[in-house]
Amino acid sequence: MKLLIHYELINTIAESSELTKKESTKVVDSEMETIKTGMKNGEKVKILGFSAFSVSERVSRKGRNPQTSEEIEIAASKAPFKAGKNLKDAIKV
């Protein structure tokens, strides 16, 4: 598994395009900031063919501790990502 760290993503974009690393940094940082700002404002941000970024609320629910089988309360949370169909299809085995 290859984990792309911020600078690796920038280097990969610079190598695969005609952009400099400085220009690639601006593109990556701008895209990330746009996604974060949109989600913070309750908007859905779509990158067609890849993903939709939005905040969905998960209600609290009951679960089980797998080690003790004790019933526990799982706190409500927020989920920030939903993979798009093309991304899901691309990673199917």
Rank of each mutant, 00 (worst) to 15 (best):
D89Y: 10
L19T: 07
S54R: 03
M1C: 14
L48S: 14
F50H: 13
L48D: 10
S69R: 06
K92I: 15
V59G: 06
A75I: 04
K92P: 04
G63I: 10
E8V: 04
S17R: 01
K82H: 11
A52L: 08
K46A: 05
A75N: 13
T37S: 13
L19Q: 04
T25N: 09
N11W: 11
S56F: 09
K78M: 07
F81I: 09
T12Q: 10
F81P: 04
R58C: 13
I35G: 05
V93E: 10
M32N: 05
S77P: 01
L87I: 04
V93S: 11
E70Y: 07
K46F: 02
K85D: 10
E31H: 03
M39E: 01
I5T: 10
K2Y: 13
V59K: 14
R61Q: 04
T34D: 00
I91L: 12
K62G: 00
S16I: 00
R64G: 07
R61S: 02
Q67F: 13
R61M: 06
L3V: 10
K46V: 05
H6K: 12
I91V: 15
T68S: 09
R64H: 14
S60C: 11
Y7N: 13
S77H: 01
A14I: 05
V45T: 06
E73H: 04
E71F: 05
E57C: 12
A14Q: 01
K2A: 13
Y7Q: 14
T37D: 15
I5C: 08
T25F: 05
G49P: 01
S24L: 10
K21A: 10
G42W: 01
I5S: 05
N41L: 08
L9A: 06
E15R: 10
E70K: 15
T68I: 10
K26G: 07
I74H: 03
R58T: 13
E33C: 00
E8S: 09
T34C: 03
K21L: 09
A76D: 02
T12E: 11
V55L: 13
T25H: 07
P80Y: 06
N65S: 07
D29F: 09
N11Y: 14
S30E: 08
A79C: 15
S56V: 05
S30Q: 06
G38H: 01
E15N: 12
T37N: 15
E57N: 13
E73G: 04
L9W: 03
K85Q: 11
P66Y: 12
Q67S: 15
L3N: 07
S30D: 11
G84D: 00
A90P: 01
K36I: 09
G84M: 06
E33G: 01
E31F: 02
K46S: 09
S17W: 08
L48N: 12
R58A: 15
